[in-house]
Design a protein around this nucleic acid. Sequence first.
RNA 1: AACGAGGUGGGGUAGUCUGGAUAUCCCGUCGGGCUCAUAACCCGGAGAUCGAUGGUUCAAAUCCAUCCCUCGUUACCA
Length: 754
Amino acid sequence: MTDVSEYVMICVAWPYANGPLHLGHVAGCYLPPDIQARFERAKGNRVLMVSGSDEHGTPITVSAELEGVKPQDIVDRYHKINHQALLDLGCSWEPKIDPRGVEYGGSLFNRTSDIRHKTIVQENFTKLLDAGLFERRTSQQYYEVSSDNKGRFLPDRYVEGICPTCDSDGARGDQCDECGATYEAIELKSPKSKMNPEAEIEIRDTDHFFYRLDLFQDVLEQHAESRSSVWKSNVKAMTKQWLDMGLRPRAVTRDLSWGIPLPLEDNEWKGKCVYVWFEAVQGYTTCAQIWSESIANKGGHPDGKDSWKKWWMVDKNGNSPRHLYFLGKDNIPFHTVIWPALIMGLNHANAGKNSSQPVELPSVGELALETNVPAMEYLMLAGGQFSKSRKHAVWLPSFLQRFDPDTLRYYLSINMPENHDTDFNWPDFVEKINSELIAAYGNFVHRILTLGARLPNTANGPFESLEIHSITAKHSEKLEKIHLEITTSLERHRYKEALRYVMNAAQYGNQIIQAATPWKYLGDKFDGSDAAKESLASLAFGWRICRYLAVVTQPFLPFSAQKLWESLGQSGQVAEKDWYSAIDWQADMTWKDQNPEPLFKRLELDEILKQEQSLVSKEVTDSNPISNVKGGKKGGKKMNKQIEGIQYLDFNDFMKVELKVGKITSVEEHPNADKLYVVNLDDGDNGRVICAGIKQYYTAEQLTGMQVVFVSNLQPRPLRGVTSEGMMLAADDGNGQVKLITVDGQISTGSTVR
RNA sequence: AACGAGGUGGGGUAGUCUGGAUAUCCCGUCGGGCUCAUAACCCGGAGAUCGAUGGUUCAAAUCCAUCCCUCGUUACCA
């Protein structure tokens, strides 16, 4: 054990509880913190790891509305699913108290709907308000009027109308897709609610509080400067970009139904909630406080309910606990600019200062700022051979039903998007598992265990009497060097590199065994010669390498590390072993008398692809692959079946639709769009131009000469610069198949369809 | 089109922030060895003017400028 154990706070981005996690999330922000936490614990540090489900905000109410259930049902469902999936992946969210004792910390995967979270957020809100760090502003916002008194304010992206600049229809809240203009949402002509187009809409004044981020400009620049040597370049760049733009006050309240209400009595604040960004980030501290109160306190931590301060406050010597935040690259500025500004704001308020006094970096007894933000790039989900045409996600829960979690942990670690985006694809997954994880590491271990099983056993296993330290000294030296490299890499958050070094150790083991050829001296063949003794001494050292590997693979591959540990006859949990015991060459040798079993099973690509095929199509049709990245959009496909009931169309309305037969005379590329063709159509009259989004399904040659059915009396509309005068009908199976509707045999163009 | 990321032997990659002399690792390929081990292991060879051009430098994959290409996200599918 190192004699000074550090306080390490590991903060994991809060997954948004409106869908299951997918492998991109795992690689980006759920696996790396677990590796880090396991590593820190093994080094003897005191680790507190926090995260939880982010359960408030508009997207969840929208999901709920679409499914016809309550928001609470949605968040309950996904909190459970995601929490379980993370546990199945081996992420150490359980037990909540460190096995070494509560003073060493623990972990808590909480949720923002926790009443205690709500209470603390409201207290903090009040503190910041009283310190004058909020300013109140009035703005105008669309309001959806409803007869039953259930009117609501509409966020900009839920409003559509006519562009004030180019007069085209379908412009969104604050930006027109047609001409690219941006404007204030209230300038929009004939605005409509996107969710409920029939509803009457009006502009109303609404008051909100804004956090005075502008007051933190200088101090945040100092902070960023002080971290410039530890932050990765993408973190530095994105932070700088934000600071260079200049910080402006940012809204902390919203007209929102699903969230934490403002802690204000006045009637005018009814129906308003704390903006989700403002409350969810506070989860990092609230979760620590809740852990402290409900877990550490009961678990007998000497500081009781205040134990969280050990992980959050700058201590009396001015030392800060180490704070590591794990998140995707899209979240960087939130954690390097906005969140530090909130922390310093709370410090400011706690010190009894107000907005006229300058804000300062944390000092003794105050909340500390982040040490490092090892943000990842994205893991891409490549279609590979099954579905090039459309993207498919691989969901964590279904993955874990079929594969050993350690295989996923290995693949994502060795392929981690540390510096740039990387791809997930099945052939690569199978290859890496079979030829690296299994062939190099798994095979080496199995080699040693089976060779050992063939030696005559003694009290402490077959190897003990065979050791000759003078012969293997150079091997221990080499492994110590590798151990140092692994350690250094992990300290620098270079997981890929660290795991590569681990594999080097296994490879080195194979080299030793290959050179020693111990199989020549087994059983009857043992002749007592020096060569035989040296050979078997190397084999015995193989046992030590296995033990070494169990310790150093543990942060990455906790399940197989434990399995190996037990196969070696070692007792207890390898996760609780000291990191440096890997290179303790005097450790007592042990043995488990048994038939050794391989650590992993080889994967068969053909089988996986077959299964995956069915999995993909199944998930598109019967699951809900809604992205749960915050601010992510839902795919269009699954909307169909989620619409409640059928919306009947009036017969007279239907009769207004005029369908005709036309013949495609020529097809051109749209000058300004990837998916559109400009189709010239002979409509039996003067001809017309239609823009059609079928570029990915038909070539221009295929289309030319086709007879198609089109809507002739649709209001013409410009589409990215070209006016489209109608719509061709096509069938879409929702799985990437699109076919135009044609007529059975020849008929003159312009014929009416009835 | 906007924004983001990337172009390194046949495929996939490390190294680029912090310039330095034989450019890393995995797969494939060719040759050899081993036969204990999960068609696994070990050794060796071939194969790269590090996207292009220009610049800075004693020295550039690495820094600067311009250009080309690819991918992702978003938008367009009336």
